[in-house]
Design a protein around this nucleic acid. Structure first.
Lengths: 366, 366
DNA sequence: CTGTTAGCGCCTTCAG
DNA sequence: CTGAAGGCGCTAACAG
C-alpha cells in the first residue's frame, strides 16, 4: 500500500473530543452507545466529527482493546487460488462459509504455499481461530498455530488428543473401494496414488512406480491412510499389496492425471481393476482408457476417491468413495465458534456406485 | 469463541522481560531482530519465554503499532459461499489471489449479504485495502468504505473520478451481442434480463415481462448498462427496444434460469434471436429449447453474457460475450497494492462465437 | 549492544 | 449524564 504514508493521518477519537470540547469517552459513547449521551452534546460531537472527517472508531484500536477480530482464518498448504479452484476445497469452504455467515464473522484466507508465507501468515493472522489444511503431522504450521494460543482445528489427520482435528475414514474408504471390486470378482488390481512424501513445493517429485519401502515411508497422512486401506481390502481378498503395481502420479494439472493414468495402464496392462486416490485421477484413467479403446467397465473397472461434480457426468459415471467435504467445513468452523475442549472427529465415507465398475471380463479364481 | 475467556491469559512481552531481567525492547529484539542481541542474553530471554509459554509477539499489538494488517478485504453483496460457487467470481478471486500471493498478503472475505453484516464487515475489517462488489452506485457500503480512509476499489461500475473502479464495457458487449445476431439476419429478438432494481434480499422480486418504465428505472449498474447496449444494437438495426419482449428472470438457482427461459419462450414464441444477460441464463434457454424441441441454432439463436466453463461444452456450445474476470481480479488487487491516485478502468469484452448462433430460419426483411 | 520512553486508538471502569 | 485514567501489547527512536 504505497500511498498509506501519503494519505493524511486521519482524525482520532481524541481529536474529535478536543474539537467538541468533551472527553474521549463521550465521543466513544456517541459512536457506540449514542443513547447514553445528551442530544445536544451528541450533535456537537457529530458535527465536530464530520468536520474532521472522523467516521467512527478505528477497528485497530478496538481490536487491541477487545482482543477479538470477528474473523476466522483458513490456512492451506497451497496458493490462495486453490480455494477457488479445487472442487473438494470449495465444498469445504461452502460449509465453513455458512457457519461464518451465521456468526457474522468474516474469513481470512492464508496461504502456506511457501514456508515463509505460511509462517508469517499463521504468526500474524488477525483472527479468533484457525483451520489448518496441512499435508502431514510434521507441518511446522501446526506448531505455530499452537503457539498462537487460539482455538484451531487441523483438517484431514489426527494430531493427538490435545488438538482438535477432523478427518474422514480414509483407510476405511480405501478398503471399501477394493472390497467393492473384489466382490465383483476382480483379482488383478493396480493403484494410482497421490504423492506420498516429497515436499512437492521444493523437490522435483519422483513419479512412477513406487515400491514397498517408498510406500511404507509415506508421510502424507491422506495418502498413507488410503494406501493402508487398499492393503486391508486386498489382504481381505487374499492379495498381497506388494504384488500390486502402484504408480505415484502427478496430480496438479489435468495433464498430470493423464500422465499418471498412462503410466499406470502401461505398467499394469493386465489389471482389470484400478483404484485411484482421487476422483480427478480416476477420471483421467477413464479418459486414457477411452483413448486406448479399453472398455470401461467392460474390460476395466475404475474406482475413484472423493467426489467432484464431474464424477457424476463422466463417461461412464464414476464409482467413487465420497466424503462429506461440506460437512467437514461446517464442523471445523463450528468447533472454533463453540469453543470447548479439543475434539477429534472422524467422518464416515460412502461408496457411490456408478457406471465405472462391473465384474471383470473373465472371472479368474486364485 | 466461547472459551477465549477461560483460556489462561497468555504471557506478554513484558512478562518475559521481567522474568529474564531485561527490558521489553530487548525481548522484542530477540524475536524480531535476534542478531542485535548478545547470544548470552538471547538465550536467557528465550528460556524465559519458553518457561512462560510465550511464543512471540502478539500480532494485535504489532498491528496497532504498525498500522498495517498485511491483508486485503473483498466484499460481496451476497453470502460468503458465493466466493466459492459462482464461476465468474471464482475467476475474479483467482486473479486477486495471485496478486496477494505475490505480496505475501492474505485475503479477508466479507459478506454484505445482510445490511447488518455488510456494515459491520466494512467498518471493522482488519485490512489494508478493500475490493467492493456491490450492485449499484447507491450501496451504503461504498460510503462506509470511503470513511475507512483505506484504499478501495469498486468493481463493475464507476462511482466518479474520486474513487477507483474497474468495470467492463457492459454496454458495448451487449451491443456486440445484438449486432452479431442482426448481422446474421435476425429481426425478431427477445431479451432475458437479470434483475433490474429490487433488493433481492428483502423484497419478493417480481419476475416476468418488464416494460419501458421498469427498464428505464433499472438501477443495478450491470443490468442497466447491458439493457442500454441491447437498445443501442437494436437501434442500429432499426429496431425499437420497446417492441422487444424482455423477461426479468430469477437467476440464483439453476431452477430460476429454467423458469426465466420458459417464460421467455412462452412470451416470445416467434423470436429467432435471444440475448441473455448471463451465460447461465443462456444455457438455461438452450436447455429449455431442447426440451421443447426447438432447434438451436437452426430455428433459434442464443447469445449469452460472461463466460463460464460450461458455456464451452454446452449443447450447442454457447456464443457469448466474454469478459476478463481474472484480469479484473488481478487489476483490483494491484491497484490496492500499488496505491497511487484513484483510477477508473474499463476493460474490453470480446464476443466468442460458438455454435448457438446462425442465420434465422427464413430471412425476413423490414 | 541494551534500556527508557512515548505513543499506536480505543474502551471500560469508576468517580463525580 | 459526563470526564479522568488506566491499560490492551507492541515497537521505533533515542540515549546510554
Amino acid at each position: 500500500m504505497a500511498n498509506v504514508e501519503l494519505r493524511k493521518r486521519s482524525a482520532r477519537l481524541i481529536d474529535v473530543a478536543r474539537a467538541a470540547g468533551v472527553s474521549r469517552s463521550t465521543v466513544g459513547n456517541v459512536f457506540s452507545r449514542p443513547d447514553l449521551v445528551r442530544l445536544e452534546v451528541r450533535v456537537r460531537v457529530e458535527e465536530a466529527a464530520r468536520a474532521l472527517g472522523y467516521a467512527g472508531p478505528d477497528p485497530k484500536g478496538s481490536l487491541l482493546r477487545a482482543g477479538r477480530t470477528n474473523a476466522i482464518g483458513v490456512v492451506v498448504a497451497d496458493r490462495l487460488g486453490y480455494y477457488f479452484d479445487d472442487p473438494q476445497m470449495r465444498l469445504f469452504m461452502q460449509g465453513t462459509s455458512a457457519v461464518c455467515d451465521e456468526h457474522h464473522a468474516s474469513m481470512s484466507l492464508i496461504s502456506g504455499f511457501t514456508a515463509e508465507a505460511g509462517v508469517l501468515g499463521v504468526k500474524r493472522a488477525l483472527v479468533d481461530g484457525l483451520i489448518l489444511h496441512c499435508l502431514d503431522e510434521t507441518a511446522q504450521l501446526i506448531e505455530l498455530a499452537r503457539n498462537r494460543n487460539l482455538p484451531f482445528v487441523v483438517i484431514d489427520f489426527d494430531v493427538g488428543p490435545a488438538t482438535s482435528s477432523i478427518r474422514i475414514d480414509d483407510r476405511g474408504g480405501a478398503r471399501m473401494a477394493v472390497e467393492h471390486l473384489a466382490g465383483l470378482g476382480h483379482r488383478r488390481f493396480a493403484i494410482l496414488s497421490l504423492i506420498t512424501r516429497e515436499e512437492y513445493r521444493n523437490d522435483p517429485v519422483r513419479y512412477g512406480p513406487i515400491d514397498r519401502d517408498w510406500r511404507d515411508s509415506a508421510h502424507f497422512a491422506v495418502t498413507r491412510e488410503r494406501l493402508l486401506g487398499y492393503a486391508d481390502g486386498l489382504a481381505a481378498a487374499g492379495i498381497d499389496i506388494n504384488a500390486v503395481p502402484i504408480i505415484q502420479s502427478p496430480f496438479k494439472e489435468e495433464e498430470g492425471g493423464r500422465l499418471g493414468a498412462a503410466m499406470l495402464l502401461d505398467g499394469a496392462p493386465d489389471a482389470t481393476a484400478i483404484v485411484a486416490m482421487s476422483a480427478t485421477l480416476a477420471i483421467a484413467v477413464l479418459n486414457e482408457a477411452r483413448r486406448r479403446r479399453i472398455e470401461v467397465p467392460g474390460n476395466l473397472s475404475v474406482v475413484g476417491f472423493d467426489d467432484v461434480p464431474e464424477a457424476a457426468v463422466s463417461d461412464p459415471p464414476l464409482t467413487t468413495v465420497s466424503q462429506p467435504s461440506m460437512k467437514k467445513g461446517r464442523l471445523a468452523a463450528e468447533m472454533l465458534f463453540e469453543g470447548g475442549p479439543p475434539r477429534s472427529e472422524v467422518l464416515p465415507v460412502e461408496l457411490i456406485v456408478r457406471g465405472s465398475t462391473a465384474p471383470p471380463p473373465a472371472l479368474t479364481s486364485p
